Lab assay of single mutants.
Amino acid sequence: DSWHDTVDGIELELHGADEELLKLAKELLKRGVSEEEVRRIIEELLK
């Protein structure tokens, strides 16, 4: 799946992010949310 590559990229960027955020990112990508949107959501949550 192409979203796996996206998640791997996000995981590299979010090496400090907790497991729950990564699960959320994967779930959003699986549901068709764009990579940009996922990054934006996670950045908001990390604030």
Rank of each mutant, 00 (worst) to 15 (best):
E44W: 11
L46V: 06
E44H: 07
V33D: 03
G16N: 08
W3K: 07
L28R: 00
I10R: 03
I42A: 01
E35D: 04
S2T: 09
L12K: 10
V7Q: 10
L22P: 01
E37C: 04
E43V: 09
A17D: 06
E27K: 05
W3G: 10
R39P: 00
R31W: 11
L28D: 00
V38Y: 01
E20P: 07
V38F: 01
K30Q: 10
E20M: 09
D8V: 15
W3R: 02
L45R: 03
D1R: 00
L14Y: 09
D5S: 11
V38E: 00
R31P: 02
A17G: 10
S2C: 05
G16Y: 13
K26E: 14
L28W: 03
E11S: 14
E44P: 02
V33H: 14
D18R: 10
E19L: 09
E37G: 03
K23V: 07
I42S: 00
E19R: 07
L21W: 05
E37I: 08
I41T: 03
I10N: 04
E37H: 03
D1I: 10
K23D: 05
W3T: 11
V7N: 11
R31H: 14
E44C: 08
A17N: 07
D5P: 14
E27A: 07
L21G: 01
K26V: 10
V38S: 00
S34A: 10
H15R: 05
V7R: 04
H15D: 13
L45S: 03
H4S: 10
D18H: 14
K47H: 10
K23I: 07
R31A: 15
H4Y: 09
I42Y: 01
E13R: 01
V33F: 15
L24Q: 02
G32Y: 01
E43Y: 11
R40W: 06
A17C: 05
G9R: 13
D8G: 13
L14F: 15
E13S: 05
A25D: 00
S34F: 02
W3A: 11
I41Q: 02
I41E: 01
R40A: 11
H4A: 10
E36Y: 08
L45H: 05
